[in-house]
Design a protein around this nucleic acid. Structure first.
Length: 467
DNA sequence: TACTGTTTACTGACAA
DNA sequence: TTGTCAGTAAACAGTA
């Protein structure tokens, strides 16, 4: 319903999101909704923090029920923002591998202001709905290296993982790194060493191979999984400079969206208004839940911080990197699409379906595969339309009832979510498994759509009216 | 020799 | 303005 693509949402000119003014109705909605306080910021950080760990934790029963009534309609909105994607065959669609010239150089930081107006992503200059990180070699994924490492670890389903496996997972799932200067590997190692979230597990003497294993510190993992992360923006999207010209040449002919001479796409007023209201509904970066912030991911970093800034060199080799802001619309170019590839257009309905059926082990491409839009969802044995479910009063009431149990289930959920850390894995398993990130993960949509207990039917109806 | 791991030092973005 | 964080670069040592 509100499937707003990047292209659809391309703003007029370079108007910043901050300048948007919500309609009175949407402002009321914002003020009255706890949804605004927590989930939106959670989402906002989904690409920039380790919050994804929460999102991939295991759903508790109460969480599942909460999902039923609250997330159906929001999922359509949030799926646009999520940077969690289902990898497909790594090399499929790799432009660089099918003839496009590649010059693996150091990426130039390139912002794409107001690329699309989905708030968090725009603010960060990303639009994962249109940027297929698995096949697009031009755009650097908007994940921090720590996040990438965690993703690799999570995807492995093992408690520990080798450095080479981390490399492999990243290159398999993010085309950018397959062609980028290998210095990113240095950054990975740097992160592993410096970040206390990661623990080195020495290789046993009888274990062949080079180097040790790495795992997530359960202490920090638990914090992460119990709602801790800190808001932080990511640097602008980075594009391999050598691709820029090709991107421009490629993207312009294929786009069907009108652009002006500056390269910005035109947006019809309806889309613009819809988007603005959506932003207001979702909270957009505006609030930070202090309760969540109490135990933040920053705890992980605080122990390793403390270096004082030193005087600059004056001249530093390699520091000639040019940082430039780009207004290029290139990032919304059409790329060869691969089913289940790393894109933001995530099928949350299908995922919900899986969750509600008690199985979030997303193997066999089941819930991650596209489903027909008219396909009904099974919610506890009841067929429901994905959108109809969102406004089903009965379901909403069920949510409120079951939320009472959320706290009780929290510990169990945390335990389940961290349980994977306890099981070892071997190099043999590593060789056998070539895990897809999402296919090997579980998604805690309860966290994703953490609306709190104060979400009322009234809010539901307001949201519905906006949709 | 290449890889792995640690450490230092810096830059830039961002938030307080 | 200052501190924090993420990213980058590089030097260096240990190891297979």
């Amino acid at each position: 319903m509100l499937s707003l693509s990047c292209i659809d949402l391309w703003p007029k000119g370079s108007v910043g999101l901050e300048e948007k003014v919500a309609s009175p109705a949407t402002k009321d909605l914002i003020e009255s909704s706890s949804f605004n306080n927590s989930s939106s910021d959670n989402l906002d950080d989904s690409l920039t923090s380790l919050q994804w760990l929460q999102e991939f934790s295991i759903l508790s029963d109460s969480g599942r029920q909460q999902v039923i009534s609250t997330s159906q309609h929001q999922s359509k909105l949030f799926e646009q923002q999520l940077g969690v994607e289902a990898p497909a065959s790594p090399l499929a669609g790799d432009l660089a591998s099918i003839g496009m010239p590649l010059t693996p150089g150091k990426p130039i930081a390139t912002a794409v202001p107001a690329l699309c107006t989905l708030p968090s992503l725009v603010a960060h200059g990303h639009c994962p709905d249109e940027v297929d990180y698995k096949t697009n070699p031009h755009v650097k994924p908007p994940y921090s290296y720590a996040t990438l490492i965690c993703m690799a670890m999570q995807a492995s389903k093992k408690s520990k993982i080798t450095l080479s496996c981390i490399y492999k997972w990243i290159t398999d799932n993010f085309c950018y790194f397959r062609h980028a200067d290998p210095t990113w590997q240095n950054s990975i190692r740097h992160n592993l060493s410096l970040n206390k979230c990661f623990i080195k597990v020495p290789r046993q003497k009888d274990e062949p191979g080079k180097g040790g294993f790495w795992k997530i510190d359960p202490e920090y993992a638990e914090r992460l999984l119990t709602g801790a992360y800190k808001k932080r923006r990511m640097p602008p999207v980075q594009i391999n400079p050598a691709f820029k010209n090709q991107l421009r040449m490629i993207s312009q002919p294929v786009t069907t969206v009108p652009t002006d001479v500056t390269g910005f796409l035109h947006v019809d007023p309806e889309s613009q208004q819809l988007l603005e209201e959506f932003e207001e509904v979702t909270g957009l970066d505006q609030n930070w839940d202090p309760h969540l912030a109490e135990t933040t991911l920053s705890d992980c970093w605080s122990a390793v911080k403390g270096r004082k800034r030193k005087q600059p060199y004056g001249h530093r080799a390699g520091s000639a990197k040019v940082l430039c802001r780009s207004s290029s619309p290139l990032l919304v170019m059409e790329e060869p699409k691969v089913l289940g590839s790393l894109k933001g257009n995530f099928d949350w309905d299908a995922l919900l379906n899986s969750a509600l059926n008690g199985d979030l082990s997303l193997n066999e491409c089941g819930p991650l595969s596209p489903i027909p839009q008219d396909q009904n969802l099974m919610v506890h044995g009841i067929h429901v339309n994905s959108l109809e479910a969102s406004v089903n009063t009965t379901e909403s009431n069920m949510l409120i009832e079951t939320q009472k149990d959320c706290d009780v289930d929290l510990d169990k959920e945390t335990f389940l979510a961290t349980e994977f850390l306890q099981s070892p894995w071997t190099e043999e398993e590593e060789a056998v498994n070539h895990p897809d990130f999402l296919s090997m993960s579980t998604v805690n949509i309860n966290q994703l759509f953490d609306l709190g207990g104060s979400l009322s039917d009234d809010i539901d109806s307001k949201i519905e009216s906006l949709l």
